[in-house]
Computed example of a mutant assay.
Amino acid sequence: MGRSVLQQARGGSAAAFRELVEPHRGELHLHCYRMLGSLADAEDLVQETLLAAWRGLDGFAGRSSIRTWLYRIATNRCRNALRDASRRIPAEPVPPFAPPAPSRRAAVTWLQPYPDAALDRIVERAPDPAARYLSRETVELAFVTAVQQLPPRQAAVLLLCDVLDFGRTEVATMLDTTPNGVKGTLQRARASLAEHRETDVRDAVQGRVRPPAGGGDDAGAGDEWELARRFAVAFTADDIDGVLALLTDQAWLAMPPAPHEYHRATAIRAFLAASTRGRGGRRLRLVPTGANRQPAFGCYLDDRPGADDVPATFDGVLVLTPAAGRIGRITRFLDPSLAEPFELPVHR
């Protein structure tokens, strides 16, 4: 960062300010997403962060990097949003059919998926080696969901220390506390995170979260997509037995923002059967995409029952969580607004 660029920005140059902050926008967006669990809320908070940075640039003393300063602003804005009682929580959708009684009601109904294409752009553009790693386990839905259930201060400390690798002294400055305070909060956050994560992914949070050697993509990605392909064939054919054969014994089905969750084969079968009847002959179509470094599909529902040339409308995103060679979780996000961030057409 040239000092002249900072001086120009302080002098009111919007172009110089963009040069300072734009390299960090993507990673700030991901950080806010991890904190808040929502793409829409993350975008709002990034905008708030950059506006606050623009207005407060004269107060930037240069004792830290611009990146660290922006993370301080973003983290504290997210903490304020999490404490805000008026934070928008999506309304529970009314299903077009009578669903069976759920196994449980989810606590985190605002969760949204994060497009892999956006994650790839963050890795490509990150200016700092410390910002380049995107460990798969720190963007998977299970991790993001667990973070949502931590108190805001614990979530902030965990993400800053264990995901972004800031030092305790840096984090203490960001959060107006002491290094010892950060240490104690981090210990509590790690313990709470392990409690909230599901059994089949809990081993990923023992100790510090670290990226696997060689980057975020693992060698089993091809096998996972073959599993996803078999799922898509069965799912779009309404072959419920075929779907169930691909699931683990402890599999879950979830549908944010609906709170209904279904556990194990009997409950999942009952929901899939009711859903199939509720579509009234309209066919589901799946278009491959990627979300949170997991196999995913854009979901399209035929506008009316008919032949193959019937138009279909985007209905949300379906994300699969592989576990031990099978599928441990199906998360179907019932959110038509996801077409834009996933760069999918609304109609096809």
Score class of each variant (00 low, 15 high):
53 A>L: 07
107 A>Q: 15
186 L>M: 08
308 D>M: 06
57 L>T: 03
198 E>N: 09
136 R>F: 07
285 R>K: 13
97 F>Y: 13
320 L>H: 00
336 P>D: 11
123 V>H: 02
293 R>Q: 10
33 Y>S: 08
253 L>T: 00
111 L>D: 02
25 R>V: 10
52 A>K: 14
89 I>F: 07
210 R>N: 03
260 H>T: 05
278 G>R: 02
98 A>M: 06
70 L>F: 01
338 L>Y: 04
134 L>E: 11
275 S>L: 11
248 T>R: 06
169 T>N: 05
89 I>C: 03
341 P>S: 11
142 A>R: 14
241 D>R: 08
305 P>F: 11
338 L>P: 00
282 R>S: 04
309 D>M: 05
6 L>K: 06
274 A>M: 04
271 F>D: 01
191 A>W: 01
78 C>M: 10
261 E>F: 02
105 R>L: 14
141 L>F: 07
95 P>H: 11
287 V>W: 12
311 P>E: 11
152 P>Y: 07
46 V>R: 07
324 A>T: 10
283 R>L: 14
310 V>Y: 06
116 D>V: 10
78 C>L: 11
132 R>H: 11
141 L>S: 15
132 R>A: 15
152 P>R: 03
330 I>Y: 00
115 P>E: 08
201 V>N: 12
67 R>M: 05
101 A>S: 14
158 L>K: 02
243 V>G: 02
266 T>K: 12
164 L>Y: 14
211 P>S: 12
183 K>L: 15
183 K>M: 09
92 E>M: 10
231 F>P: 00
223 D>H: 10
80 N>S: 13
250 Q>T: 11
215 G>E: 09
182 V>A: 02
211 P>C: 04
205 V>L: 09
284 L>M: 14
17 F>G: 07
44 D>I: 09
271 F>E: 07
80 N>E: 15
138 T>C: 14
173 T>P: 00
15 A>T: 07
172 A>F: 10
161 C>W: 03
347 H>D: 12
123 V>A: 15
11 G>H: 08
17 F>C: 07
97 F>N: 05
225 W>P: 00
47 Q>N: 13
343 E>H: 04
291 A>P: 08
225 W>T: 02
297 F>D: 01
34 R>D: 09
84 D>R: 13
307 A>S: 15
202 R>D: 07
304 R>C: 05
82 L>A: 12
80 N>C: 04
276 T>P: 00
325 G>D: 05
1 M>R: 11
16 A>D: 05
3 R>T: 13
57 L>M: 06
111 L>N: 01
7 Q>G: 06
93 P>Y: 06
278 G>K: 03
98 A>P: 00
140 E>H: 12
138 T>K: 08
83 R>Q: 13
80 N>V: 14
306 G>H: 04
